[in-house]
Simulated assay, not measured.
Amino acid sequence: MSVSTRTYAIGAVTIAAVALGATWWATQRVSADVFAQCRQGAIAGGIEAIGGPFTLTDENGRLVTEKDIITGPTLLYFGYTFCPDVCPLDNARNAEAIYQLDDRGYEVTPVFVSVDYIRDTPENQKEFTDVMHPRMIGLVGTKEQVEAASRAYRTYFKMKEPENNPYFLIDHSTQSYLSFPEPVGFVEYFNRDVAPEAMADRIACFVDVWKTLK
C-alpha cells in the first residue's frame, strides 16, 4: 500500500470513528433524558438553557422568588392583563388544562407573569387570575425584575410607545413553560396551538415521571 493510499485509509477510518462516537454520544444524551417519553420535539439549546432564578411580587404584594412559586409542577405564562385577546385565551386554555388535571388527581399550579411593569399591579393581576383558576398566581415586578425573569425563560416582549398611549400594546412570546422544583427545573414548553386535552395529557406524563424521581 502506498503512503498516500495508507494516509487516505487512516483518514477515512478516523472520520468514521468520530461519526460513530458522535452518534453514540447523541444516543446517550437522549437516553439520559428521563422525560424523553413525554416530549414531542427537541428544545433548541437544551432544557438546561431555559429557566432560572427570579424575584417578583405576587398578587398579594409579597416579594417572592422562584423557590416560593415553583414548589411542585408549575405552568408559567408571560403576558399582561391589558392584552386584548391572546393572553386571556392562552391563560383560559392553561386553566382548562389544569382543571382537567385536577379531575385526574394532579395538582399543577398555573402562573401568570406580567411583562407590563408600567400598568400591571398585584391588584389587577389578582382580579385576572381569580377569574381563570383559584390556584393561578399572578406575578409583577419592576422593569429590571421582569426583564431578568424573561431572560431566564428566554421569552420576548417589546412595548409599543408606552409614553404616548395609555392603551399601548406589548408584543410578546406566547409559550407556556412547565417547570418543577430544583434540581429538575424547566422540562417543556407548549405552543399556543396545543389544545387543553393534549396539554393535560403531556403534563400528566411529565408529572408521573417526576414523581418517580422524588
Results as ranks from 00 to 15, higher is better:
residue 150 S to T: 05
residue 125 Q to E: 11
residue 192 R to P: 13
residue 135 R to P: 09
residue 148 A to M: 03
residue 195 A to F: 10
residue 202 R to L: 08
residue 107 E to D: 13
residue 192 R to G: 10
residue 9 A to C: 14
residue 193 D to C: 06
residue 193 D to Y: 09
residue 213 L to V: 01
residue 159 M to C: 11
residue 5 T to S: 15
residue 8 Y to M: 15
residue 193 D to E: 07
residue 9 A to Q: 15
residue 165 N to H: 01
residue 196 P to F: 08
residue 37 Q to A: 11
residue 170 I to D: 04
residue 104 R to P: 10
residue 151 R to I: 05
residue 138 G to L: 07
residue 163 E to N: 04
residue 66 E to M: 04
residue 165 N to G: 03
residue 141 G to H: 04
residue 113 V to P: 06
residue 121 T to G: 13
residue 36 A to I: 08
residue 70 I to C: 01
residue 184 V to G: 01
residue 152 A to D: 08
residue 157 F to A: 01
residue 43 I to Q: 12
residue 159 M to A: 10
residue 81 T to P: 02
residue 89 L to F: 12
residue 14 T to C: 09
residue 45 G to M: 04
residue 50 I to M: 03
residue 17 A to E: 03
residue 85 D to R: 06
residue 83 C to K: 09
residue 108 V to S: 02
residue 27 T to I: 13
residue 192 R to E: 13
residue 112 F to N: 02
residue 69 I to D: 01
residue 92 A to R: 11
residue 99 Y to D: 14
residue 150 S to N: 05
residue 106 Y to D: 06
residue 74 T to D: 08
residue 105 G to T: 02
residue 158 K to C: 12
residue 8 Y to I: 15
residue 214 K to M: 12
residue 29 R to P: 09
residue 207 V to L: 02
residue 38 C to G: 01
residue 43 I to Y: 11
residue 102 D to Y: 04
residue 209 V to P: 09
residue 26 A to W: 13
residue 42 A to H: 11
residue 67 K to E: 15
residue 18 V to Q: 05
residue 176 S to H: 07
residue 136 M to P: 03
residue 168 F to D: 00
residue 77 Y to W: 04
residue 71 T to G: 07
residue 183 P to W: 11
residue 3 V to Q: 08
residue 72 G to W: 09
residue 176 S to A: 06
residue 16 A to P: 07
residue 34 V to W: 07
residue 196 P to I: 07
residue 20 L to P: 08
residue 8 Y to R: 15
residue 208 D to S: 08
residue 77 Y to G: 03
residue 147 E to I: 13
residue 170 I to W: 02
residue 196 P to A: 03
residue 98 I to L: 11
residue 89 L to G: 14
residue 25 W to I: 14
residue 44 A to L: 14
residue 80 Y to W: 01
residue 68 D to H: 00
residue 102 D to A: 00
residue 202 R to V: 05
residue 2 S to R: 12
residue 117 Y to C: 06
residue 143 K to E: 13
residue 7 T to D: 15
residue 103 D to T: 13
residue 84 P to M: 09
residue 148 A to T: 03
residue 196 P to V: 00
residue 192 R to C: 12
residue 5 T to H: 14
residue 24 W to S: 06
residue 121 T to A: 15
residue 6 R to M: 10
residue 73 P to D: 02
residue 211 K to E: 10
residue 158 K to M: 12
residue 44 A to C: 15
residue 23 T to D: 14
residue 44 A to S: 15
residue 96 E to W: 07
residue 196 P to K: 10
residue 162 P to A: 04
residue 89 L to E: 14
residue 103 D to E: 14
residue 186 F to K: 01
